[in-house]
Design a protein around this nucleic acid. Sequence first.
DNA 1: GATGAATGAGTCTTCATTCAT
DNA 2: GATGAATGAAGACTCATTCAT
Lengths: 197, 197, 197, 197
Amino acid sequence: MLSTVDGSFMSSPEAPALRADARRNRARILESGAAVFAERGASASTEEVAARAGVAIGTVFRHFPTKKDLLQAIIKDLLERLTDEVNALASEGDPATALFTFFGRMVREAAEKKTVADLLAADMGAGIQVAGPVQTLQEAIGTLLTGARHAGAVREDVRLDEVLALLTATCQGALSAGWDPDLRRRTLAIVFDGLRP
Amino acid sequence: MLSTVDGSFMSSPEAPALRADARRNRARILESGAAVFAERGASASTEEVAARAGVAIGTVFRHFPTKKDLLQAIIKDLLERLTDEVNALASEGDPATALFTFFGRMVREAAEKKTVADLLAADMGAGIQVAGPVQTLQEAIGTLLTGARHAGAVREDVRLDEVLALLTATCQGALSAGWDPDLRRRTLAIVFDGLRP
Amino acid sequence: MLSTVDGSFMSSPEAPALRADARRNRARILESGAAVFAERGASASTEEVAARAGVAIGTVFRHFPTKKDLLQAIIKDLLERLTDEVNALASEGDPATALFTFFGRMVREAAEKKTVADLLAADMGAGIQVAGPVQTLQEAIGTLLTGARHAGAVREDVRLDEVLALLTATCQGALSAGWDPDLRRRTLAIVFDGLRP
Amino acid sequence: MLSTVDGSFMSSPEAPALRADARRNRARILESGAAVFAERGASASTEEVAARAGVAIGTVFRHFPTKKDLLQAIIKDLLERLTDEVNALASEGDPATALFTFFGRMVREAAEKKTVADLLAADMGAGIQVAGPVQTLQEAIGTLLTGARHAGAVREDVRLDEVLALLTATCQGALSAGWDPDLRRRTLAIVFDGLRP
DNA sequence: GATGAATGAGTCTTCATTCAT
DNA sequence: GATGAATGAAGACTCATTCAT
């Protein structure tokens, strides 16, 4: 993946201009947070995130005043990275396969890193708000879908919300059940078959 | 549904006979536990389960020495009920549609009652062991699949583990995303299409 | 069972019927809380209150779900006790001296036990609500004042709010400065002189 | 008021000369500290003092190595200002009214600015030492008292410690109860009446 | 000197679990 | 067996204080 975690050289203009060490810590906290929450679920302790990031607990709370803020930031980060991937596929790849490629990649990552859908699922309920980034990602996937339809790789009557539903479902399934590569391939083959004309 | 919640007259032979009120309490705890954990997730407090069951907290722990035991019992209960449903479909229904019927019913319930997959997903990770009942359910579903294949309703090369993977995935997806009936129908249509010859 | 359900034969009607040991603990927590907060101020730790009461921290929070609740209960308790005293004086004592007697007693206790005014002052700001009990106490003192005026012991134009202001002020002063008995006597003598015709 | 806030040109001889900006910062910290602690009580955070002073937290701790030091400095400052006021009244004003004038002014300020007595009361307990400045102020007030006695405005048997006790008490009372001007006038009228022959 | 990020002990609060009643 | 009070280990969060930049 090309994007940097800390967004160091292109931080958004209104950001408070963090010191180099602070930026480094922020990035490490996000990273360890993603790992810890993916492994242990959203109820893992902030202390463990701090420990894995190699900082004191206070540092985590300085960067993210609330556990919810931390969770939200991790998810946002993840969503942005996914959106970047989708956009790259949309501009480079073959429209007939780009959607399936992204779909497969996302499910594989969910199974391997146990990150994406768990966070999306486990915590949405807790009032976490990431509406903006989610919509951006969805629109990007919509572009892939349109391309695939035009290329005749996907049925004309398939709508975006079904695709998103299938994507979310398979990510969560792969995640919680730990699909091995072969099972993943066979399961997705069925879904992809269902999408084709 | 025919199964009893408390399993009163078929408890394992060596278990000491429960007093009538104890049996009643056990059943009510399982029931309220299913409701509470489905609504609030597995991190809901045991106290709340007790309150909704109308018993004191001590009573819950007398029946289930550990929260994990309670969760396990609830899941087991659920699995047994599902197995009964599958078996009923297998012996009565049309083999060509039975699998799809069960699939659709389970996803609908997940979406409506937020029970099945949430428990299965959220807590499997915590070391809960329900291997036996799960296998029983899986075998029952296997029967449905075989019937469907023989009836020509499902492709010959589709294996049970893919079907289970798709079932789990869509249940979780429906659950966490709250699919409305129309979205559920369209999403499952794609999956079913993928399963057909 | 022959014993009564709550075991308490004279608790106030709407009270939740505490067990004997719980009632004992509740009382001890209120007592140690009054002492600790008076000594160390309202920012003393709940842990210390628990320790002095000889219970675990959880017990304090079972009885008073919030630190604020604890503070409020202590103050209410105090106010009720004071109101009782005032009422006793109003019905028994000499109207010409009852007000002065109560005034002096309250200031002496403030100086000795460092309780009354500190709590009243330190915590009122934190959103603690004891409006009811406070008003009850004030009305009781009002009765004393009326009696004293009728007896010619206090000037006709002295109103209740001034008396309360002087009472609060001297309590706080005695409390924070630790007036010794002699200083207290001389200081109150001046105030009482100011109140007389 | 004549005293400078920063005490720049009269700092103790051995203290290293502060840079102009450092002197300015010290003054602003004292000022914002007085405001913040008066508003929020002594448990307000040092961070807030820094923010209101427009400096970083490190700067506060460079000037006052400990929160206690900061509190102590604020109180000292306050006491010195009060002493100046008393001295001015002692040398200029009418001895018969000077004491009452000062008394009334101090109580009014307490009620309005919530500063004086709060700090004096709330923090004395925490081991803050300002014995020297306090004694200086007390002696200055003693001069006012002597003048008032000689002028026949105050009873011969009234001693300084009672006057100070009444002053402290009414300041605290006015402060915590927020006496309005009318109540303040009536309450002080009673106290003054008690002091007169 | 100023800055503000990092530290970590301390505080409030929750909750699974135990046990006296 | 049922009750619900007590326990105490965690967990989220705060804040005085230190120190690298």
